[in-house]
Design a protein around this nucleic acid. Structure first.
Length: 524
RNA sequence: GCUCCGAUAGUAUAGUCAGGUUAAGUAUUUCGGCCUUUCGAGCCGAAGACCCGGGUUCGAAUCCCGGUCGGAGCACCA
């Protein structure tokens, strides 16, 4: 075995080709895209990654990148993947109880099971202990300067007077933060970095601050705590304590690494490996939380699953599968360059997932009545639910002409397809010729039953349903408009969540069926 | 303004770290054709890219410098 591994890939291939030629061809068809190796994975006993959302809103396509990369890398190295709620700001990014669960559901839906879950609002004591320790070591101080004054000084590489305070004084001030002597905004714990750091944003960054939780109670722990850690402090401590080996996050966190590395040095810890991927966008849909919330508040969107949005809830409702999102994200990978995804790309991934299993049905958009004369006898049309898989079953249509005349519904969209043609074929039924097109009625004459005949004369194939049958159907389109029509009778037995294809119209996901069939359009 | 990061076809990505065997590979998109009782899938074919300018080198998509463009951060947010 070792012997073989020592050979070059080409040499290995040559040997295989010689001895087992069929093995290689199979390998090629199953080829799927792989993530590049994780940096320094071998240095750690066990790879640990985490996804750490603030439960202040639902997840979107951008979050999916962090989740899938973190999850996949953990699995790739037989490691662990954690979920950690970062809910330490009950004021400006206030968490809401409903989103903790919504996020869990999104993760489950994506198929990314987490090995352990943490909630930062349960861990305040841990942060307090570390704050005390770092104050005792003289590597942090309690700053009572006016924010703007501090910033002005930091900008000019000057230290503030609090920086020189003795440990005892800092500890005293720290207790004043905890016991309520200081009010909100009056004191903050700062981590000592380097007042000459080239990036002013890194200089003596704030680690813990006071929140008036009487006024802004935390959804989980209410007003129990008034001193709360800031992002770099809680995240930095947690990543170390939880043994996270690889942090995978957006590059907006790049300077946070610089900041946190100072703290790690103070504690004598080793900073984890990091991957900072670039900004992800998708054409025409905002992935900014605040913008989505703005649209929600203004009434532009009724719900965060509005089809115009790229939230996971919206994509799910449109019939985009988790597998499609997964393979899209693997395709994009972890590189630091920004990407602007095209919906068509997502659709292509999705189509690959659903095409083989989605049942086929007729949906007549903007119906118009058509009568066909000279229909010689009754028909029972039997059309497969999937043209490639007749074993799935069939749908049946009864056509009973009266005095040789049968009535159907076709889509007005097909009028231009039909116009001026010598022959048209109703899929799975018969051929006819259009005699007259009026505003609300099309008249036609029966030509024949033979499909071969239709093919020979190049007759267009259109879909149809018998008049006075079918289910009224509304299709919510990606732009939130609603396409109305009638879908065939067999659709009555459809279940919510099912993804089907309306033939010649596109793939849709079933919302519900009652008196009316409600579906959402996914893509062609 | 300051501090970072990045740049391969319409989109996404491989190749870049260890410069040559790649007249830049793949997926998707687009356009032809075939096939198919869907405008879906499948098959065949075509089109389409190394941001610009210098430098190093026998040789640069790959290394160096400059520029341009794009993005991020500069909160007592995450």
């Amino acid at each position: 075995m070792q012997e073989i591994n020592a050979l070059h890939l080409e040499q290995q291939k040559a040997i295989v080709e010689e001895k087992w030629p069929e093995a290689l061809t199979k390998e090629k068809t199953e080829e799927t895209k792989q993530l590049p190796p994780l940096p320094n994975a071998k240095k750690y006993e066990r790879v640990v990654t985490r996804f750490s959302p603030n439960p202040d809103f639902v997840l979107h396509l951008g979050s999916a990148r962090a989740i899938i990369l973190s999850y996949d890398y953990a699995k790739m190295y037989n490691g662990l993947f954690y979920l950690r709620f970062e809910d330490t700001d009950s004021k400006t990014k206030k968490p809401k109880l409903e989103f903790y669960n919504a996020i869990r559901d999104d993760l489950k839906w994506l198929g990314c099971k987490w090995d352990a879950e943490f909630i930062q609002s349960d861990r305040l004591q841990i942060y307090y202990e570390h704050a005390e320790e770092i104050l005792k070591n003289g590597n942090a101080y309690v700053c009572t300067c006016i924010r703007e004054v501090f910033q002005e000084k930091a900008k000019n590489s000057q230290s503030c007077p609090c920086r020189e305070l003795a440990v005892e004084e800092n500890l005293l001030r720290w207790n004043h933060m905890l016991d309520g002597t200081y009010g909100e905004g009056e004191a903050v714990v700062r981590i000592k970095t380097d007042v000459d750091h080239p990036n002013p944003a890194v200089r003596d960054w704030p680690a813990l601050r006071i929140v008036d939780t009487e006024k802004y109670p935390h959804p989980r722990v209410g007003s129990k705590y008034r001193v709360w850690p800031l992002y770099n402090f809680s995240t930095g401590i947690d990543d170390h304590l939880m043994g996270v080996t690889h942090i995978i996050r957006g590059k907006e966190h790049l300077t946070n690494q610089d900041r946190q590395e100072y703290m790690y040095q103070h504690f004598g810890w080793k900073y984890p490996e990091t991957i900072h991927y670039g900004r992800l966008k998708i054409t025409g849909a905002s992935l900014s939380k605040s913008e989505i919330v703005k649209g929600l508040n203004s009434g532009l969107y009724k719900h965060w699953d509005d089809p115009r949005l790229a939230t996971l809830a919206a994509l799910r409702k449109r019939g985009i599968t988790p597998e499609a999102i997964h393979s899209l994200m693997i395709d994009v990978g972890p590189k630091p360059a920004d990407v602007v995804l095209s919906w068509k790309n997502l659709y292509a991934h999705n189509r690959k997932q659903i095409d083989a299993t989605a049942k086929r049905y007729f949906f007549v958009h903007n119906p118009i009545k058509i009568t066909v004369n000279n229909v010689p006898h009754d028909f029972t049309a039997q059309i497969p639910l999937h043209p490639g898989h007749p074993e799935i079953g069939f749908r049946f249509f009864e056509v009973k002409p009266e005095d040789g005349e049968a009535a159907f519904l076709i889509s007005k969209d097909d009028l231009e397809v039909v116009e001026g043609k010598r022959a048209i074929r109703f899929m799975g039924l018969f051929n006819f010729k259009v005699e007259k097109i009026e505003k609300s009625l099309v008249q036609a004459t029966f030509l024949g039953e033979s499909y071969e005949e239709a093919k020979k004369v190049g007759a267009p194939l259109i879909h149809w349903i018998p008049c006075n049958s079918g289910v009224p159907c509304e299709v919510t389109m990606p732009d939130a408009s609603v396409a109305k029509g009638v879908s065939e009778e067999a659709c009555r037995s459809l279940n919510p969540n099912e993804i089907v294809q309306f033939q010649r119209f596109g793939f849709v996901r079933v919302d519900g069926v009652n008196k009316k069939l409600n579906v959402r359009f996914a893509h062609r």
